[in-house]
């Protein structure tokens, strides 16, 4: 196991950020952490890259204890933090070179590595740009490039694609899959269930500092939700009418939306026939449905 946590706890003064967490990440796999805002994903990641110290429990990375060997662990991993922390005083290329120096990589190797990485993340034309001149997507790609300067065995990505346009997101997905193919282990957090479904071999759903489910995306869908979902959109009184008539079916409501769950598409036939005017969408269920079922539809404040 590349990362292994046993009954991991993290408390900040009186806030419990992570509680009784167990997880194991296999070499060469992509492991996803999902959960509502404040669930404890970033804290978990930061404990893995040794920026937060566990309050109790054990956490080992590459078989090394995070409390005892942070330097050896950090030498072998790459970090893409939730908030970009590029060095604004340095240009694109210098950012990579200076970062390579923190790893003790010599100047010549750093130069060629930076070149390759700028190509890999399609930033070649921006090599000499000052930081403030880069767009959000360019900065994000640069942070990913920077995380790769030391050829990490484990790449940690905290919301790598939040706030990016679809083109950049697809580029990043492609690159992450390339890296996985090369044998790099990936750990990522995301709020996009599509992303987790596409990239991750296993997904851990966290809520209120605890793990609430774990498994491959298909396992999670099979175990936690029915295979099909019918989404209906109607006003409040119609909603009440529908739920009083079809309350025997499995459903959830959220605002003006109703979600009915079923084992096959024809289970919804009566319902669809009864309300032909209503806006509707019948689709196979996804990780998003699992997420909403496990963590509820209310907002986290």
């Amino acid at each position: 196991m590349i990362v292994e946590a046993k009954s991991l706890h993290k408390r900040f003064h009186d806030v419990v950020a992570v509680e009784s967490l167990d997880l194991a990440v296999e070499r060469g796999s992509c492991y996803g952490l999902v959960g509502p805002n404040g669930a404890g994903k970033t804290t978990t990641m930061r404990m893995i890259y040794c920026l937060n110290r566990p309050t109790s429990g054990t956490l080992s990375v590459f078989g090394l204890d995070v409390l005892k060997e942070p330097r050896r662990i950090k030498a072998r991993l790459g970090v893409v933090p939730q908030d970009n922390n590029l060095d604004p005083d340095l240009s694109t290329c210098r950012n990579l070179e200076v970062y390579a120096r923190y790893f003790g990589i010599n100047r010549a190797d750093a130069g060629s590595r930076c070149h390759d990485l700028l190509d890999f993340m399609q930033l070649r034309d921006r090599a000499d740009s000052p930081m403030p001149a880069l767009s959000g997507g360019m900065k994000r790609r640069l942070v990913i490039a920077r995380a790769l300067v030391n050829n990490p065995e484990l790449l940690i990505l905290d919301e790598p694609t939040t706030g990016l346009d679809p083109q950049v997101r697809h580029l990043i997905w492609d690159r992450l899959l390339d890296l996985k193919e090369q044998g790099v282990t990936l750990m990522l957090t995301t709020h996009y269930m599509e992303e987790a479904q596409k990239l991750c071999d296993r997904v851990l759903v966290m809520d209120h500092a605890r793990a609430v489910a774990e498994g491959s995306p298909t396992e999670l869908i099979r175990e936690h939700v029915s295979p099909y979902v019918l989404e209906l959109r109607a006003d409040r009184s119609l909603n009440a009418h529908i739920t009083s008539r079809f309350g025997h079916m499995e459903f959830q409501s959220s605002g003006q939306n109703l979600y009915f769950y079923g084992g096959s598409p024809d289970e919804f036939d009566d319902l669809l026939a009864a309300y032909p005017q209503t806006e509707r969408l019948l689709r196979p269920s996804s990780l998003e449905d699992v997420f909403l079922k496990l963590t509820g539809r209310e907002l986290r404040l």
């Binding site: 920026l51 330097r71 950090k74 970090v79 908030d83 970062y99 920077r146």
Partner: peptide, 14 residues
């Protein structure tokens, strides 16, 4: 303001 140190201590530098 710049979070530069956070980036640095994510490397072997302590």
């Amino acid at each position: 303001m710049q979070n530069t140190f956070e980036g640095i201590i994510s490397t072997p530098v302590s």
